[in-house]
Design a protein around this nucleic acid. Structure first.
Lengths: 110, 110
DNA sequence: TTAATTCATTGCAATATTACGATTAAAAGA
DNA sequence: TCTTTTAATCGTAATATTGCAATGAATTAA
């Protein structure tokens, strides 16, 4: 089907999955790392830095922007991207809660 | 293409993406949460709990196992699954390093 | 105005993912 | 042995993702 049955899961589970999904491609990981490293970054810089075609980078940027993790600011013919710090922090809270779950019992069935 | 160009990224970037990808589906999130909640869990229990068909759950379990995040132990005709705590901890280190990046400068281009 | 620059969008081909019915494999129970 | 139970695997349909060439839109430079 290729289509996740999101309606049978909780909002929290779907939210975790959506955030994780956007990190599930190395190009988007690389873009984010670059935005953290450089305080602001033009689209063209990312194309040069990462080595994928411009439309491909543009598409990845669109997905990151759609989730609110980055912001883009038009400056003439260029677009300057940066991390959306408030939303990044909110995302971290959600993901940390999931990643830092504790085992209720010191299980080891295996 | 549907195929990521992993060769142009660092091992670290690819590793982050692989972990994130497996969390990028709510069924796998739900499975992991259940395994944390219950100290051990049979495949059939997960099928009942989550509400996807048995082959679908089995497929998701396979992906989680392939990344080493869970272990499975055959007990008669059943299979008992649990979190692979050591590998989970190692994964957390990798993901936390990515999620907890700090901005080098108090950027705000936007 | 015209040309150049920068980036978004469109359209498409190749591949991956999701879901599940049908089947198989292995063990337990009758 | 035969049947039941449990879960993995196979096969396949529907959909999503990735990547890029071609194009378009907006701004700046000449």
């Amino acid at each position: 089907m290729g289509l996740a049955k999101t309606e049978i899961f909780t909002d929290q589970q779907n939210e975790i999955a959506l955030f994780a999904k956007v990190f599930g491609h190395p190009a988007r990981v690389a873009i984010l790392q670059q935005l953290f490293k450089i305080d602001a970054c033009y689209c063209g810089d990312l194309v040069n830095e990462i080595g994928l075609a411009q439309p491909t980078i543009s598409q990845h940027l669109k997905e990151l922007k759609h989730l609110g993790l980055i912001k883009g600011n038009v400056e003439g013919t260029s677009v300057c991207y940066c991390i959306h710090t408030e939303n990044w922090t909110a995302m971290k809270t959600v993901m940390n809660e999931f990643l830092n779950q504790d085992l209720t019992e010191k299980q080891d069935c295996c």
